Every structure is written in structure tokens, then in C-alpha cells.
Amino acid sequence: MKKSENIIVGISIGDLNGIGSEIVLKTFEDSRMLDFCTPVIFASAKSMNFFKTHFNSEINFNNINSLNQLVFGKVNVLNCWNEPVTIEFGKEDVKIGEYAIKSLQIATKALKEGSIDVLVTAPINKHNIQSATFKFPGHTDYLAQQLEGESLMFMVTDALRVGLLTDHVPVKDIVDNLSEELILKKINTVYNSLLMDFNIVRPKIAVLGINPHTGDNGVIGNEDDTILRPTIQKLKEEGKLVYGPYAADSFFGSNNYKNFDAVIATYHDQGLIPFKTLSFGQGVNFTAGLNKIRTSPDHGTAYEIAGKGVADENSFKEAVFAAIQIFKNRFEYNELTSNPLKKSHQKM
């Protein structure tokens, strides 16, 4: 197992006109972070020095042109471009979107090749990144194409984990996107992630209903009875502790979520509104189910406060810690599952 400080955390810089640069700088101004990992920021020395001056940061960057030049225990900046970039905080700019994607693509290539151990992505603008060569709603969809496995948006904190059956899908299309195959795939992805990434031996999962009051016996729709219940029953017959569907309106307010290791929401806002309310800015977006580890903060570019020095870095810092811990958990899980004797010895 790697030493903690030798875990290489790649950071895609995101939208340069947003708060990404600020939260990255604030996170690593705390030199104790270098006891847990060695960061590599995929951007450019010129851009990062601009941010350093603007935010009066005292970080000393180690500027590199190749990951072979990386120095452990330093904040490394990999030059992904050399030309100067005009940065206008708070402005949506297609050219800035191109730099965000360049950073993401080079960082993802490094992740695939094993040159970095994990990837933490700073926020992008989903609109200005669109081009003839990049047509993805966001990070998750791009990484799902680039990496192996079945991706799932998994929002996590110490006390709450929320997975989604559908993520960036219009509300009117949610039911059309649901099927037994999809539900089984997504719930199994969460189940396996709880085992492998969070070291939970016997995961217990709650599934939220599709309709208000889970349809009220067909009065408010029958999808909960025809789609969700039979699929959940199949998972139970496999021996998995999967329960529901639960009425979403009372599930979180009653603290019922505390009885489960993860909650599966049917659609984006059903899961993310309570998650972001309860996580108090400490939430992390983890792309579960892939063969590589990627996390991000649970917020966007926040143009309205960009450049003002008031952005809260806690969610980004938690994303770094989560990526490191998941990396360690996954390593330990793979060690145990590939060596049954070691596993049985530990139980003695």
C-alpha cells in the first residue's frame, strides 16, 4: 500500500472564471494536506500564478511539464497549456470552457494510465463546455465513457449516502428512463460500492418511491407497484438488504435515513435537495462503479462570488479526503478478496 503522502491526487481546474481556483488554493494552503497526498493541478503555471497573486496565496508551486517531474510533498502544477489566458471572474466564456475540458481530458488520461491515483474535479459550467468534440452533460457522463464500469452519481458524507437511479434527466422523462434492468444495475452498483469503497460488510439500502406516497395503491400512479416493488423483491431474494419503496416526503424528516447505509433516489432533485440540506456544505459527489476513483465538491462554479475570496473550500477539501479514503478502502478490499487466507486470519 502506498504511503499516504505518496497518493497522487490529480485536480482538473474546472472553469477558470468560477470559484474552482480559489477553493483549490484554500485547500492546499493548509500544508498538513501534504501529509495525506501529493496534489497535481492540471492547468498552467501562468494561470495558477495569476490566481496566487489575486487571492494572496502563499503556496509555492512546483511547475512541471511532465508527470515524471512530479515532486512528492509539493503542490505540483502540470502545464496543460502555455499561452496566457484572460480570466474574467463570473463571466461565462466559451474559450474558458475549452480550457476546462483540456484540463479534464489530460487529467483523465493520466488517471487511466495510472500516473495519478485519484481525480478530484473542480466545478465546470455545463453550458460553455459544449462543442463539436465534447457533447456531454458533465463530468460523470464523460468519465463513464472514458473509464471501465457502470457509473453512478453517489453523493456522500460521513452520515449520509445518496445514489440516483436517474441523474440529469428532465422530470417529464424520468419514468420512461426507468426499467427493471436499470434499477438492478444502479442498486447493485451502490451495493458493490458500499462493500468495496466504504468497507461496509452487509450493506442496508433504502429505495425512495417514484410517485407521491409511493402511488397510494395506484391512486397517484402505479409505477411504484409495477416497476419498483418487483425489482426490489428480486434483490431481496438474492439476499441483499434492500428495502422500499419509501415515501420520499417523510423519509428524511423522520430521520429514517439514519437506519440505512445508503439511500437510492429515483431522480436528481428527490435525492439532492435533502442531501445538500443535511450535508451543510460538507457533501461530496463520488462517481461510483468505475474502475478509477473520481470525486468532486457538491456545488457549481458560483459565478456570483467568483474572485471575491469568500468561497467555502470545505466541500472540495472533503472531496480530496474522500478520494484518498476510497482509494485506501478499495486497495484493502482487493487485497482481502484476492487473499482469502488473509481475510480469515483477520477474523480470528
Rank of each mutant, 00 (worst) to 15 (best):
N76D: 09
Y303F: 15
N82I: 03
P137L: 08
G309T: 13
H127L: 13
T108P: 03
R229C: 07
L111K: 04
T108K: 04
I106H: 08
E98V: 11
I116L: 04
I7R: 10
A132I: 09
D117N: 15
N211S: 09
L143H: 08
C37R: 09
R202K: 14
K102W: 08
M348I: 14
L25Q: 07
L182E: 06
T266A: 10
Y267A: 01
K135N: 15
F61T: 05
I64S: 02
H54V: 04
P170V: 05
F198L: 06
E313P: 00
H213M: 11
I64D: 02
R32D: 01
V71W: 03
T53K: 15
T27K: 12
D261R: 05
F316R: 12
V75L: 08
N76S: 01
L160Q: 00
N60C: 12
F252Q: 08
K2R: 15
P212Q: 04
F327S: 06
V284P: 05
I293A: 10
P274E: 00
M155R: 01
N334G: 14
D197C: 12
L228K: 13
T38I: 07
F260W: 06
K276D: 00
T189A: 10
E223K: 06
G307C: 02
F28D: 06
S296E: 02
T231E: 09
V94F: 10
H345F: 15
N65Q: 09
G283M: 00
H299R: 04
K240C: 07
N314M: 13
G10Q: 11
A247Y: 12
D176V: 01
M155F: 15
E304G: 04
E180Y: 00
N68E: 14
T189P: 00
S296H: 05
I87Q: 06
I7Q: 00
N68W: 02
H213G: 14
V190T: 15
V201C: 07
A248Y: 09
K308M: 14
G281K: 06
I232R: 02
K234H: 08
G281N: 06
S131A: 07
V71I: 15
S66W: 11
G281Q: 01
F252W: 10
N314E: 14
T266W: 03
G20S: 03
S193E: 05
A107R: 12
P170L: 07
F286L: 10
T27Q: 07
F316I: 05
F260D: 00
D141F: 14
L195E: 03
E181G: 02
K347H: 12
Y243M: 07
L278N: 09
F72L: 09
T140E: 05
I273C: 00
D176L: 13
F28M: 10
G10S: 10
K26A: 00
Y303M: 01
P39A: 04
N60V: 14
L228G: 08
T277K: 01
V94K: 15
